[in-house]
């Protein structure tokens, strides 16, 4: 299927020096390849019965929104994976490469796909700038949302797995684990945690809960 492959972009640039000069370029060659020539995105209307699961994470208010569609076949293998995203370069690239990972070699099973971690996606991309990691690698979350949707549609309610971590912000789907990790990486103010996770950006109702968690983990790890 070639309907989703764009012709390569003209010119050979695309490198942008990072602000802090700690790295000479923002993005690796693999990131650039997937950013400029994203794979498997949905650029047409969906045909009836083409997909049997859909997942979503984020909102434009967070700066990133991602929707994924799956076609799950026999043996719970993912035969097709399509996506759409409103997001920055690394959001586009990480989703593109995750879609490749999921359907290559005949497709992952749902239980294999559920185990994909942001770290796995980042590794395949050859790294991402630190500040881009937490906020722009959303595909694993959207994928798990879609897997649950598949089980819901096929009446296998017992196989639905609610995220082990508790979702704190239903819009950005940031969990208490995400916040814990951000604090461990040194983000001990609301602003710093938001920079890393986008928790509560555009959803101010959850800010008190986020602040409470930051205080909790800060005390836990840094006394």
């Amino acid at each position: 299927m070639n309907d989703h492959v764009l012709p390569p972009i003209k010119g050979s640039g695309g490198d942008v020096a990072s602000q802090d000069k700690k790295q000479s370029w923002f993005y690796s060659d693999i990131v650039k390849e997937h950013f400029f020539n994203p794979k498997n995105f949905l650029d047409r209307d969906i045909k009836e019965g083409e997909f049997n699961a859909m997942g979503k994470v984020g909102s434009p208010a967070c700066g990133d929104e991602l929707k994924v569609w799956l076609n799950v076949g026999e043996d719970e293998k993912i035969l097709d994976f399509k996506w759409k995203t409103f997001g920055c370069g690394s959001a586009i690239a990480s989703t593109s490469i995750a879609s490749v990972m999921v359907i290559e070699n005949g497709g992952m099973t749902l239980s294999e796909a559920r185990k994909i971690k942001p770290q796995d996606i980042m590794k395949r991309l050859g790294g991402l700038p630190q500040r881009k990691f937490h906020c722009s690698v959303l595909c694993d979350k959207a994928l798990r949302d879609a897997i649950n949707d598949y089980y819901r549609r096929t009446d296998q309610i017992d196989k639905i797995q609610v995220e082990a971590a508790r979702i704190i912000d239903p819009v950005s789907k940031v969990t208490d684990r995400d916040i814990e990790e951000a604090v461990l990486e040194g983000a001990i103010t609301l602003e710093a945690v938001q920079k890393k996770t986008k928790a509560g950006v555009g959803n101010p109702g959850v800010l008190p809960a986020i602040e409470e968690l930051i205080r909790f983990y800060k005390d836990k790890y840094f006394g």
Partner: peptide, 9 residues
């Protein structure tokens, strides 16, 4: 994303 596409051009 748009800025990076422009940069490439």
């Amino acid at each position: 994303a748009l800025l990076l596409y422009l940069d490439a051009s």
